[in-house]
């Protein structure tokens, strides 16, 4: 089983690397990150490194999310429309194996995307760090420090976050009949997951006045949608601007792993019933 998943993932990865859409988004995100360097003086008083990190991580997530929704949907529908899926699924390949192969292939591409852009952001931050430290020393304030380990941890968390989005796109794709529907519904699910923290905060607020129905709806929302906003701790990890509680990265990674398992299980179950 693992061998078949590996081979499908490998071919999916190689095919995805040839997609112009990937090259376009990668270049766009890199241009966005590089474009922030000449604009660093407009840092809104938050400090140059924070400005560069915010824009870089924002670009990584924005373009990564678009890629995480579109790429797996495109690869899945491409294989179904072109009948490649018929050829593969007539072999002793389970539908779950096929879908997991698509997932791992797409996720590997997002790994390349995430770590390449993180490397670019890291280089920019490390190049600018000495100047910023010198200025801070001259002003006798505590200088910020770029953590390479923090960069790696942040990249890992973003990759996991994008993995959740890929799995959501495949779940929607397993149920939907068209590529466009998958992309629209998948994007809405990502948006809902980005905003689910509002529901969590509202439920946790003892002063919030909520009807039973509203409370139930908010509770359900917080259980269905993963809180993707919770993975936005790049600035803290990389620049150490505030304290990261011990075990935060592990806890977020574990949470992502649980979401991945559950969403992929649902996607595989839905795909088994699909007419190819």
């Amino acid at each position: 089983m693992f061998s078949r998943i590996f081979w499908i993932a490998r071919v999916t990865f190689l095919e995805a690397l040839r997609q112009r859409f990937l090259a376009f988004l990668l270049l766009l995100a890199a241009a966005f990150i590089l474009g922030s360097v000449p604009l660093r003086s407009i840092d809104f008083g938050h400090g140059e490194l924070k400005f560069l990190a915010d824009l870089g991580f924002g670009a990584l997530f924005l373009f990564g999310s678009i890629l995480a929704v579109v790429l797996p949907s495109q690869l899945l529908y491409g294989e179904i429309d072109n009948r490649t899926a018929l050829t593969l699924l007539a072999k002793p390949v389970g539908r779950g194996e096929f879908l997991l192969g698509k997932f791992f292939g797409s996720w590997a591409v997002l790994g390349v995307f995430t770590f390449a852009l993180t490397a670019l952001i890291g280089i920019i931050l490390l190049v600018r760090e000495p100047d910023v430290v010198a200025r801070a020393m001259a002003l006798q304030v505590v200088p910020p420090e770029v953590s390479v380990l923090g960069l790696f941890e942040h990249a890992l968390l973003q990759w996991l976050r994008l993995g959740i989005i890929v799995s959501v796109a495949l779940l929607v794709g397993s149920l939907a009949q068209t590529f466009l529907y998958t992309v629209v519904v998948g994007s809405m699910a990502v948006l809902a997951s980005q905003l689910v923290w509002i529901a969590q905060d509202t439920l946790a607020n003892p002063e919030a006045v909520l009807s039973t129905v509203m409370r139930g709806a908010l509770w359900l929302t917080t259980r269905i949608f993963p809180n993707l906003q919770g993975y936005n701790i790049g600035e803290t990890l990389v620049l150490g601007q505030s304290m990261v509680l011990p075990g935060t990265v592990s806890s977020l990674s574990l949470s992502a792993a649980v979401y991945l398992v559950v969403i992929l299980f649902l996607a595989c179950t839905a795909f088994r019933r699909r007419e190819i």
Binding site: R83, L86, T87, A90
Partner: peptide, 16 residues
């Protein structure tokens, strides 16, 4: 499945 081979109509294979 392991004992059958299938060629669908107008198949498309990975061009690369």
């Amino acid at each position: 499945r392991a004992r059958i081979g299938f060629l669908p109509e107008a198949p498309y294979f990975h061009r690369f």
